[in-house]
């Protein structure tokens, strides 16, 4: 699969841009966190596209971003359960 470039994204409408990035992020995240991949991808997609492209190009920053997202997600789920 050819790498996603800014010009490819620029050619697509905003909704489509998120979809294109998500389709590439998901498998990378799934390799690390199969159970949370959908949620983590959904969280990361809220980040600005330019930053997302950087994450796709550098696995290290993607990994640390994913770990950050997992921590936020777990904290969020903890507050969820405490509300109940």
């Amino acid at each position: 699969q050819e790498p996603l470039t800014a010009s490819m994204l620029a050619a697509a409408p905003p909704q489509e841009q998120k979809q294109m990035i998500g389709e590439r992020l998901y498998p990378l995240i799934h390799a690390m966190h199969p159970m949370l991949a959908g949620k983590i991808t959904g969280m990361l997609l809220e980040i600005d596209n330019s930053e997302l492209l950087l994450l796709l190009e550098s696995p290290d920053s993607l990994h640390s971003k994913i770990e950050e997202a997992v921590a936020v997600l777990q904290a969020h789920q903890a507050t969820e359960t405490s509300h109940k």
Binding site: P14, Q15, K18, Q19, G22, E23, L25, Y26, P27, G38, K39, I40, T41, G42, M43, L45, E46, L73, H76, E80, H83
Partner: peptide
């Protein structure tokens, strides 16, 4: 209220349109 946060984050599923994107009205 907690209800809005229940469906956060908007989950992404490959091959399905991602629901998290704010619908921009034309």
């Amino acid at each position: 209220n907690g209800s809005s946060s229940v469906n956060w984050p908007p989950e992404f599923r490959p091959g399905e349109p991602w629901k998290g994107y704010p619908n921009i009205d034309p």
